[in-house]
């Protein structure tokens, strides 16, 4: 066992020196650049997939727009006007080019610029996501870390049981229950969240309360479990035992010795959970009739508004990539071995 350990150690040292030998201009910058390039390539790939997936939807856009009574000449005219008779690859190029200049195109359905359609909705969704994150992340991390500190106690068991219960219950159930309890029986909160009607701080709280509670339930459970698991895993290492043998308290062992080394997995779990707030909130937005971007996309699908669907999908993907890239960067920066 000893000899094996030393082999591992030596390999580590070799690796380190080879890294050093390759580039003295900070390997951390290289890694960061690498992560960002990967993110951009992924985004292009997703754009490609979204475009051609919507292309493959059955039906001709011009025919749909003009309705069944349209003459073939009218359809052909519209196709030319919309560049629909050009090859798909070429249209993909136009679309990507326009995306980069910030031109998202025009809605097929109501002829409004898509940026106008999305703008307000995106702000609404970000507000909801922001408030949910601001509440659930600190609570989840605290619960996860304290559960790890108090492993095996009643407190730990209760936290574990509740998180499993919350994971197992679908969110529409939580949302519906919340409506029944708070809006119907108690009458404390409105059943629908009309964000634009808010004028006062109290009104804001009322409008956000139920969607935020529902979403927090859903995303916190995952974060609590991941945080607890990541901290517990590092608690089993030799350096934490060493800290114990130096006389450190359980609290110091967890916060000072285990947590910094568990940061990578925790940040990733947080990023994954938060990314759900952008795309996966359709159910919550629908139930509370909240005017967010997920609901906008749902409407776009039912009206076959392809440019709008494409733009929404791109925004979801961009949000996801930003979160994951930030998580990776935090993990890289927090690892002294890479500095």
């Amino acid at each position: 066992m000893g000899a094996e350990g030393s082999n591992l150690r030596v390999q580590g040292i070799h690796y380190h020196t080879s890294l050093k030998g390759r580039s003295m201009n900070s390997p951390i910058l290289n890694l960061v650049a690498e992560r960002i390039i990967v993110a951009v390539v992924t985004l292009l790939f997703v754009a490609f997939t979204i475009f051609f997936a919507t292309e493959m939807l059955p039906g001709d856009v011009a025919e749909i727009l003009l309705g069944q009574a349209a003459t073939p000449e009218a359809v052909a005219g519209l196709r030319t006007a919309m560049n629909l008779d050009e090859p798909a690859v070429l249209r993909f190029m136009y679309w990507i080019g326009n995306l980069f200049t910030g031109d998202l195109g025009v809605s097929y359905v109501n002829k409004m610029p898509i940026s106008d359609l999305i703008g307000g909705r995106l702000v609404n969704s970000l507000k909801l996501a922001g408030v949910t994150a601001a509440i659930s992340v600190p609570i989840a991390l605290t619960l996860g870390i304290t559960a790890a500190i108090l492993r095996g106690t009643i407190y730990d068991r209760i936290v574990s049981i509740i998180t499993i219960a919350v994971i197992s219950v679908p969110e529409f159930m939580v949302a519906t229950l919340a409506v029944i309890v708070f809006a119907v029986y108690l009458g404390w909160l409105p059943a629908l969240s009309m964000a634009h009607e808010v004028t006062s701080m109290g009104g804001l709280l009322k409008v956000f309360a139920m969607p935020v509670i529902t979403l927090s339930f859903v995303i916190s459970a995952q974060m609590i479990r991941m945080t607890r698991a990541a901290v517990l895993e590092t608690l089993n290492t030799a350096y934490v035992e060493m800290a114990l043998l130096k006389g450190a308290s359980r609290r110091r062992m967890v916060l000072h010795h285990a947590l910094p080394n568990a940061l990578g997995p925790i940040v990733n779990a947080v990023a994954l959970s938060l990314s759900y707030l952008l795309g996966g909130v359709i159910i919550v937005e629908t139930i509370f009739n909240y005017p967010g971007i997920a609901k906008l996309m749902l409407d776009a699908v039912s009206t076959r508004d392809l440019p709008l669907i494409q733009s929404c999908a791109m925004i979801f993907c961009l949000g996801y990539l930003i979160l994951i890239t930030i998580a990776d960067l935090v993990a890289i920066v927090s690892n002294p071995r890479l500095q």
């Binding site: 000893g2 290492t237 030799a238 934490v240 060493m242 043998l245 130096k246 006389g247 450190a248």
Partner: peptide
């Protein structure tokens, strides 16, 4: 436990088998 902890490091201390694993990689 908390009274044992008070004596660890001051009265009796420990040199581990694998120092490489017993140093926390995150701290100087």
């Amino acid at each position: 436990e908390h009274k044992r902890a008070r004596r660890r490091g001051t009265e009796v201390s420990y040199v581990p088998q694998s120092a490489a694993a017993s140093f926390n990689p995150a701290h100087k």
